[in-house]
Simulated scan of single mutants.
Amino acid sequence: MKEMTAAQLKQMIEAGERIQVIDVREDEEVAFGMIPSAIHIKMGDIPERMSELDKQKTYVIICRSGVRSEHVCRYLEAHGYDVCNIVDGMLGWDGELV
Rank of each mutant, 00 (worst) to 15 (best):
L91Y: 09
E70N: 14
A15W: 10
G44C: 14
A78P: 13
N85E: 09
E29D: 10
I22K: 07
C84M: 08
G33P: 07
E14G: 11
M1P: 04
M90K: 02
F32K: 06
D23M: 11
A31G: 05
S51D: 09
G89M: 07
V98T: 04
V83N: 15
I61Y: 00
I86S: 02
F32P: 05
K57E: 15
K2N: 14
D82C: 05
K10P: 10
M12D: 11
G66T: 04
L76Q: 04
T58F: 00
G33Y: 10
V60R: 09
G92P: 01
Q11G: 00
Q56T: 15
R49V: 04
E14S: 15
I86F: 00
G33Q: 04
E14F: 09
K42M: 05
Q20N: 07
V87D: 00
C63N: 05
I62T: 03
T58W: 03
E17P: 02
G80I: 05
S69C: 05
D94W: 06
Y81K: 08
W93K: 12
E3Y: 04
D27M: 08
D82T: 10
F32I: 02
N85I: 14
C73M: 08
I22E: 02
E77A: 12
D88G: 01
Q8K: 03
V72Y: 00
I19V: 14
I86N: 07
K42R: 12
V87Y: 00
M12P: 02
D88F: 04
G92W: 01
T58L: 02
E96L: 09
R25P: 06
Y81F: 15
E29S: 01
G80L: 10
A6N: 01
A15S: 03
